[in-house]
């Protein structure tokens, strides 16, 4: 069973790498947006393989559907059907910066605990408490729900505030009185 889980895990991660590389190379915006939809859906599948079913639901509904629809609407509102131009100078700089990031992160993960280790520090701190006591305290079998809505309820309230603010921002930006676009 564990072997199958691992095969699924690495296959999906491989697909993700290929999709991300393709997005970085394509110069058509529509193609990039559709590939981004595929990328999100692959991420959602990976979350199922990693036991995070609630996250997978959210990623499939919000990350895949809403984000892709938002991008498609932005494409149609900006009318950008043209091909994206590439500038070499930019690309060399980008390669240097991302290699620097990769080196820094590689140094950072050197002493990470092994993947799926039950005795990793992250799994020993408060997680056992939630798993053992949340049912008697909250009464919901889904631990993620009881942590999200009860133990970390203020966190979720803050999330709602962020979404509200973003919504106001979007409305303000899209309905603002605009000067005519400059034609020259």
């Amino acid at each position: 069973m564990i072997a199958i889980e691992l095969v699924v895990n690495f296959t999906l991660l491989g697909f993700l790498l290929v999709t991300a590389l393709y997005i970085s190379q394509t110069n058509r915006l529509f193609r990039a947006v559709m590939l981004f939809g595929i990328y999100s859906l692959l991420t959602a599948s990976l979350f199922v393989a990693l036991d995070a079913v609630d996250v997978a639901f959210t990623e499939a509904a919000v990350g895949t559907c809403i984000a892709t629809i938002l991008m498609l609407s932005a494409l149609s509102l900006t009318g950008s059907r043209k091909e994206v131009r590439f500038r070499r100078k930019n690309a060399t700089f980008a390669v240097c910066v991302s290699i620097a990031l990769g080196v820094a992160l590689a140094i950072g993960i050197m002493d990470m605990p092994q993947f799926a280790d039950p005795n990793a520090p992250a799994n020993l701190h408060v997680a056992p408490y939630y798993l053992q006591d949340s049912y008697s305290e909250i009464g919901i079998p889904n631990v993620v729900t009881s942590v999200l809505a009860s133990y970390r309820g203020y966190d979720t309230l803050g999330e709602v505030v962020v979404i509200f603010t973003a919504g106001i921002g979007v409305i303000a930006l899209l309905t603002a009185r605009t000067s005519k676009p400059k034609e020259d």
């Binding site: 990693l50 036991d51 995070a52 609630d54 996250v55 959210t58 990623e59 919000v62 990350g63 809403i66 984000a67 938002l70 991008m71 609407s73 932005a74 992250a122 799994n123 408060v126 997680a127 939630y130 798993l131 631990v143 993620v144 942590v147 999200l148 970390r152 966190d155 979720t156 999330e159 962020v162 979404i163 603010t165 973003a166 919504g167 921002g169 979007v170 930006l173 899209l174």
Partner: peptide
């Protein structure tokens, strides 16, 4: 599996879409 990262990421996904919408606007 550990439920705590799941909760954090659930919040992060929704906030991420909100910021994406703002950026696109």
């Amino acid at each position: 599996s550990n439920p705590l990262p799941h909760v954090l990421i659930l919040t992060a996904i929704v906030v991420g879409v909100a910021t994406t919408a703002l950026g696109l606007a």
